[in-house]
């Protein structure tokens, strides 16, 4: 626990008044404080949208890259310097839509990063089109007769790909969200937090009341150690369960299994070219 604030109050916040992101910003500040994360060892990686602006309003190093690409970028950051805590904060469009393939493979890779997905079931930045998590029948100026596609189920997807940490929270419940996100960051390996949040401007359907009425908490006696049971709960559609669905510790992170880190544990920035070895390679293989 540190008492140093992670808020950055020097930039103007570009979110709409009443946006669900304000609560998440406050939660992240508390999460980082309570975990006592060294500011110099923290990197946030984001894509494009409203959620990805989050690190601008926090006192952190960040890489606000391209839409949909936050997971490969975060993977590169972690692989180059495993000493960094890497947190991705992006929206449902970024992680599940544009970056859907990256999501699948980041899960398979089990890279040690935390992914917090602001899930408001709509595209906010582009002004109100369907997102991959929009519910069937949700009407927009593009989906004029309502969404026909099945909503993407991130939790079931993550569980089926043997992810070690799968959770969902509702940003409106700051205490619960904080608890879940803290556990996610502590988890060694890929951790997913699907975070329900409202878009006050472009989603009048899934508002604060809707999320309250259509969610419930996994019971106190629920144990997140059974993948099949977790999968069953993740398949529930209405009401949607909240909490940590599954959690299983890894003995080794992905980067620790790589040949690059088998001898030398140091970040790439501190490495030197082993010219002696290079000469040996040339002699053995090419001379």
């Amino acid at each position: 626990m540190s008492n140093i604030s992670y808020l950055n109050n020097n930039t103007e916040i570009a979110w709409c008044p009443g946006c669900g992101n304000f609560a998440i910003r406050k939660t992240m500040d508390q999460v980082y404080q309570e975990l006592g994360i060294d500011k110099q060892k923290l990197v946030m990686v984001t894509g494009i949208g409203q959620a990805p602006k989050s690190p601008h309003y926090l006192d952190v190093s960040f890489f606000n890259g391209l839409h949909g690409r936050s997971l490969p970028t975060a993977t590169g950051v972690k692989l180059a310097n495993p000493e960094l805590t890497v947190v991705v904060e992006s929206g449902d469009g970024n992680v599940y839509g544009e970056g859907g393939n990256h999501f699948l493979h980041a899960l398979r890779r089990d890279i040690d990063i935390t992914v917090i997905v602001h899930n408001n079931m709509v595209y906010g930045l582009t002004k109100g089109q369907a997102s991959p998590t929009s519910r069937k029948g949700f009407q927009t100026p593009v989906q004029t007769t309502g969404v026909l596609l099945e909503p993407f189920n991130p939790l079931a997807t993550a569980l089926s790909l043997k992810s070690g940490f799968v959770a969902r929270a509702n940003a409106a419940d700051a205490e619960q969200s904080k608890k879940v996100i803290k556990a996610a960051i502590r988890h060694k390996g890929f951790s997913l937090v699907d975070l329900f949040q409202v878009c006050v401007s472009f989603n009048k359907t899934n508002d604060y009341k809707w999320f309250k009425d259509h969610t419930y908490y996994l019971e106190d006696e629920y144990r997140p150690d059974d993948r099949i049971q977790a999968l069953q709960r993740a398949m529930e559609e209405d009401p949607l369960p909240l909490g940590i669905f599954f959690q299983q510790e890894n003995d080794r992170s992905f980067h620790e299994k790589l040949p690059a880190y088998s001898q030398d544990k140091s970040p790439l920035s501190r490495r030197q070219v082993n010219f002696e070895e290079l000469n040996k390679i040339i002699e053995e293989e090419f001379v």
Partner: peptide, 17 residues
């Protein structure tokens, strides 16, 4: 697409990718 973004993440964090 993933490859180039990983490489950029790598440079950002001090690698030579």
């Amino acid at each position: 697409i993933a490859a180039i973004n990983m490489a950029l993440g790598g440079w950002y964090a001090g690698g030579r990718a």
